[in-house]
Write a protein that binds this DNA or RNA. Structure first.
Lengths: 132, 132
DNA sequence: ATAAGTGCAAATCGTTTGCGTAGGC
DNA sequence: GCCTACGCAAACGATTTGCACTTAT
């Protein structure tokens, strides 16, 4: 991922190295959890640096983010292909393999000319635990 | 809807009457569009009043809201049964009949014990216009 | 008369932006 | 040395909250 940056003329800094490491280490990150992870070793990295780098990574197409319900946005690598089930009650997020959505994808494409986001989408509902 | 309030001992005020009217008149409202609608006739209704009343209506179960992508939340009556297709590029929202999701609903119930929100859910993707 | 509902202003939360400086190339 | 990326602080948009006052019941 850093190589990709360099090849585009972008600079490699300690902050960027640390953010990249954190992104590779865990599949779901909020901006906040990234700041926290980075600050363990580089205590004065600013939130704005994280936001700006994430934005750059999204432009390049290496990272995606989703707004899952109420809280902050969630970031993950663009090549992770899965859907998100977001519980409206507890806010919990479950990952589901992309394949579970192939039927819906076909239907929406036919019905509405709508293309389900490849490798990344969210549906809302109630998780097993909250159905009581 | 006002009758429902009264039966629960909640009070009917001019602001509430106006908010209720606006909710019945259009199927998708942001808090802002509600404030604007209400202010046409009652110019000094405060946003906080709208937010508080919406919260009360959600507790009762008459109204639901969703966070569709980046912008402000969208409110609608709880008995409107449909899904939302949210375009990641332009932010546009398309309504789809609930039936389009019955296959997915079954699959998620079996696979993950996850219950698709009845009458209200959103999936992200790209709308026809933005696919170019 | 009582307490639910209100308007206003300030606070909060997540995120963005402006600006002067540091440091990768 | 140049120019990108940085840290900081202030600005931002959406929403929430505290408080004194109004008003439906």
């Amino acid at each position: 991922m850093l190589a990709e940056l360099r090849s585009r003329g972008m600079r490699i800094t300690p902050a960027r190295r640390a953010i990249a490491t954190a992104l590779l280490a865990r599949s779901h990150h909020t901006a906040d959890s990234l700041v926290a992870a980075v600050r363990r070793r580089h205590p004065d990295v600013a939130p704005s640096t994280v936001y700006r780098f994430l934005e750059a990574l999204e432009e390049i197409g290496l990272v995606r983010h989703s707004h899952l319900g109420h809280g902050p946005a969630v970031y993950h690598l663009a090549d992770e292909r899965h859907g998100h089930l977001v519980c409206e009650s507890c806010g919990g997020v479950t990952e589901v393999p992309e394949a579970a959505f192939s039927g819906l994808r076909r239907k929406l494409r036919d019905l509405e000319r709508f293309e389900l986001a490849p490798g990344h989408f969210a549906v809302t509902g109630l998780c097993g635990t909250c159905q009581s």
